[in-house]
Design a protein around this nucleic acid. Structure first.
Lengths: 177, 177
DNA sequence: AGAATTAAGTCAATATGACTGACATAAATT
DNA sequence: AATTTATGTCAGTCATATTGACTTAATTCT
């Protein structure tokens, strides 16, 4: 009944809307982020803390400025979260050896362990999601996700991820059918 | 250099962590939600409004309670957003014909048009993301995303999405390798 | 018929994560 | 010496969410 109702309101001849993928992305991403969210709630940390912890752990010695540009948040937003992580002994700041203005960010041993633990939670979910998928699926998923990203941003993100994208030609980010 | 630094801190012999997929999901989802976010900013609406609009448009006549359970937010959180959408003439509430306690939710004509417009933005991105993927990729992506969802929730979500999942056996949500 | 439950809404207080804009300091670069 | 850069801070605001308690109306159960 409802399905007919919907169909009727869609203009005839137009491409069907990809409601399934849209909603799957919504629900999948929600559950994906909930594993670490729940784990961090014990420390009174939230998703913002997780993102900072993740990218600092992945990029030891990252500058505050570079972290801001990855996360696309403002200095003020980062400030509080970062301070809490430093106070909790999860992240530490060291003066840059060449440029003494910099406060380079590193996870402490404890912070690194925590980051790995959270990543393992997400790993578990990702592995479970790939059960019974045919060979080559991971490469398809990777390419799909990369191409979901704004073309202008892809190259920079590939650098951040610095993973096995050798087969993807991201020098032509604007190609169309 | 940095890559070596990271490798050293990982215990030898453990499975490599799927940083690439984790980060791709983060960046892909961020850009995916930005299209409608940007479009709604003109109306002074945010992502919360989009979610409500989307699921009301997809489920005409949905009860407030059911919408709350899909979105997993509280009545109070929904309240303000819903009121704004009703005030703006985007969503309307009708008394249930069988149960007069219910305020069933519908998009207005204007609301429906807006919902479709936003969905077309996301469609564009999804289509672009599937360029140059081999045949059968969409099915793989769909299955991957479905299996990213908590096993206990999958069946309910398939009902919400009510799409082409005939080939997926979600009666055994807990199967492992 | 009366009790219990359900659907929806409201009040009050709070938390989190984000924003803008302005300004300050120190260090590096030009 | 002047400018730019890296970082941090102050003050105020906003959006989205939370919890818990309570109300009203309508339906369902016993």
């Amino acid at each position: 009944m409802k399905q007919i109702e919907i169909k009727e309101t869609e203009a005839v001849g137009e491409t069907p809307l990809p409601y399934d993928l849209i909603e799957l992305l919504f629900f999948a991403y929600r559950d994906f982020t909930r594993d670490p969210d729940d784990a961090l709630a014990e420390f009174d940390f939230g998703r913002a803390h997780h993102r900072v912890l993740h990218f600092v752990d992945r990029n030891p010695g990252i500058m505050v400025t570079d972290l801001l540009s990855i996360l696309r948040i403002t200095k003020q937003s980062l400030g509080r979260v970062l301070k809490q992580l430093v106070d909790a002994g999860i992240i530490e700041q060291r003066e840059g050896s060449h440029d003494r203005r910099q406060r380079l960010l590193y996870t402490t041993e404890r912070g690194h362990t925590l980051a790995i633990d959270l990543t393992r939670l997400q790993q578990k979910r990702l592995e479970r999601a790939q059960i019974d998928l045919p060979d080559g699926s991971e490469e398809i998923i990777r390419k799909f996700l990369l191409q979901m990203i704004d073309p202008e941003a892809r190259q920079e993100i590939v650098k951040i991820i610095r993973s096995s994208f050798d087969l993807i030609d991201y020098s032509k980010p604007d190609q169309n059918k």
